[in-house]
Design a protein around this nucleic acid. Structure first.
Lengths: 343, 343
DNA sequence: CCTACAGTCGTAAACGTTTACGGGATGTGT
DNA sequence: ACACATCCCGTAAACGTTTACGACTGTAGG
């Protein structure tokens, strides 16, 4: 079966009618519609997507921009896969597909995105890892491409995003530690150009100051959010003269490296140093001693993100009347043994 | 910038020439080509992919079929993400994109695949989780859609695949345990309809019999390859009257559930029961006691898989002259403490 | 009998490319 | 002067759909 034309002449009907029949348009006799659907089923005819896309100007594909480097992917762990899974659950209902767009490490993400948008291969985009000032957001806004982002940014006024409540995490972590008598509390964070890194540390600082604890920049450790980063963070912690009694991690993978380095140094976690992590990935549950950390459901987040995107697309808006509002995603504290002692 | 037509009339050249200039065709003056490229750059013109696809009959998209259920995704962990990353590394060189095709849990995978193929939205497919008899393979072969699979199958004679060396894993695991005096060795595996499940157990059986240890079907525990499956496997182990002294896991996530159940039962891992796992995911490294397991690089596997696929596509064959041969992917044993005792 | 209208359907023009084909220059060798 | 090849470029036909438009029935209402 080549195309709609063959199907039409086999049925001795015009291709226009066949198309209308298949697409559920009203002005077609129910009897002929039945015949058309039966024949399509029989021959396994499905409309060629390129043809439709060209004519309709929409591709039924949602782009998902990701970082392509091996390191990024390995560290991202199943964060993205979890979100992706939720996204697909939403998109599948509308027969939308998800196209992964890995920006090569050596290319400017904005240029890459611009090319992909110009190719008109996606109807909408999901972006993540937003910078504090993110040109991709301006680009997409101007190009009028629907998009949703995981992570806030300062760019371009109003746009759909869902962001993890890092502010709350930092605040609650500090509160929890202060309540146990800690006053020298270190924190890890990515570069402050990444919005997350900025927000996280700012909230930490504010909470400290609310308790009359002066903010000490040397306690802010900027490392990569990876296992190696955790190792390095522990290393830097050990170098400090007035060593902190607690540390807040921004990413749970770091705990693994951090534990290792601290064990090498003979520091007893949960006794000599309190540790609070973030994101309850399965593996973090099996650290010894168990890691106190903040948990969320990536799958649910993906669903919310997908719905939010669709709520901003005219063709799907009706399905999600209240899906458009930005979300600060809450996290639940899972107490462990890594921060139980009092100082 | 709307399309090639506008670009052409701005340059006062025919669209045919513009197209040839952009696509590097030979019969165009170098001077005009320069002008065209400059103008395209200036206006940010990139050819509409639907138009090209329609005309050329190829979409520059590779499909990746995955299971869509939440459970599947969460258990799949970063296995798929790791492979995906390697795939993209290969595909990016040829400006190919990767489309995720999540088959809904309530739909027949083969029907789903057929629809996607008929839509002509992908040039080729990657499939995984192959069954011993897998209709998808026949379908793709007949439809003459290039594809590559992770996992062997009995279907359709010759097709490109890369498969993990489960045979070797089972053999070496048994050898290792037998050398330490074990004679009652349990093994976990998925259903034998999944080819992996069949091969794994067969190799286990052969190796046992080589050492004159009779094969005992009650020691083959068919559970899901998940954390819960591990828990359940431990549970079933404990029920056996003549309790085994060792167990071989097919998937490292299971170790987490298995450890937990065994600890609840007061069994000392590495003392009362030897455990050997598979696939050195980061989290498995942090089990106590550390898990002996078999490791591989998913990223490298993804690269090999991608190259293999391209080697089977006429348009890219030339780039990978020897990429077409099937691969049994080797695994490296990482010794841990979970199987150190002698019996 | 005329008009209006609803229900169907066919016709043909888009959508944005690529590419086979042919033709006008220009050069080159006899 | 002629044949012939080379280089460049324009023309127009595809690729497979969807959809605006108009046309043709039959029916109902006046």
């Amino acid at each position: 079966m080549k195309g709609i034309r063959q199907l039409a002449e086999h049925l001795d009907i015009s291709i226009g009618t066949v198309s209308r029949a298949l697409n559920g348009k009203p002005d077609v006799n129910e009897e002929t519609r039945r015949r058309v659907l039966a024949a399509a089923e029989e021959f396994g005819y499905v409309a060629n997507q390129s043809g439709r896309s060209l004519r309709q100007g929409e591709t039924k594909v949602i782009g998902l921009m990701i970082e392509a480097s091996q390191e990024a992917v390995e560290n991202a762990d199943n964060f993205f896969l979890g979100v992706t899974s939720g996204l697909q659950h939403v998109f599948a209902r509308h027969k939308l597909d998800l196209l992964m767009l890995p920006c090569p490490a050596d290319e400017d993400p904005c240029e890459y995105l611009k090319r992909m948008v110009a190719r008109r291969v996606v109807d909408a985009m999901i972006i993540s890892n937003t910078q504090r000032i993110d040109r991709r957001i301006d680009l997409l806004s101007r190009a009028k491409i629907p998009f949703a982002a995981v992570g806030r940014s300062l760019s371009a006024g109003n746009y759909p995003w869902v962001d993890l409540d890092f502010e709350g995490v930092a605040e609650r972590a500090v509160e929890r530690l202060v309540a146990r008598g800690h006053r020298r509390i270190a924190i890890t964070a990515p570069s402050s150009e990444v919005n997350l890194g900025y927000v996280f540390v700012e909230s930490y600082r504010r909470t400290l100051e609310r308790h009359d604890i002066p903010f000490d920049p040397s306690l802010v450790i900027r490392v990569r959010s990876s296992e190696q980063g955790g190792y390095q963070a522990a290393h830097e912690l050990l170098q400090l003269e007035d060593r902190p009694t607690a540390v807040i991690l921004i990413y749970e993978l770091m705990a693994i490296g951090l534990y290792r380095r601290l064990m090498e140094a003979g520091i007893r976690i949960g006794r000599d140093l309190a540790v609070i992590g973030f994101r309850d990935a399965p593996r973090a549950r099996f650290l010894q001693p168990s890691l106190s950390c903040f948990r969320l459901s990536l799958y649910d987040l993906g669903i919310a993100l997908g719905q939010m995107l669709l709520a901003h697309m005219p063709a799907y808006r009706a399905f999600y009347p209240d899906g458009g509002r930005n979300i600060i995603w809450p996290l639940e504290l899972v107490p462990g043994e890594s921060d139980v002692f009092e100082v």
